[in-house]
Amino acid sequence: MGYRAENLLRLMRAITPTLLGVFGVILLAAPVRLFEGLAPTPIIPLVIVFFWTVYGPDLMPSVSVFLIGLLQDLLTGGPLGLWPAVYLATQFIVLSQRAYFLGREQKVVWIGFALASLGAGLILWLVMSLMSGALLPVGALALQLIATVLIYPVFAIVFGELHRRVLVEA
């Protein structure tokens, strides 16, 4: 394989997680109304940020996390800086616990993700409550986070295969 082609391939691998994050944000902005809007859309970018912060932080640099969050703010019309702060805080917490997660069973990592989402939700709720000057109802947020945590294992398997077979090994 030529030197140039190899470089291109390396670049493609390096940006795959970021592109997946962007895709997740677009999905979040698309009118996906699962079961007539009863089931909230899971926050897939949170899964992506969590997963690659644990298994390949080089593939998920803070700049990518920031840009994914900023795009989400711009597309959902929220205050700018909200989602970057939430995702970066998640990354910060996960990085500090990374040594514990590596090589653990997926069940353990799943619980870790549930705790990380709880933290992210708490930050989101606090910031939005502060900005609107009233304690906001948490029902909708809780449902969305539960949906995200429930769907995590599926994404973990898919991303795990992708990471192992394409991004690292190949």
Binding site: A29, P40, T41, L75, T76, G77, G78, L136
Partner: peptide, 14 residues
Amino acid sequence: VIGEANDAFARSMI
């Protein structure tokens, strides 16, 4: 409607 903020606190459509 081509887009929607599927966000717990932002309620808007594009």
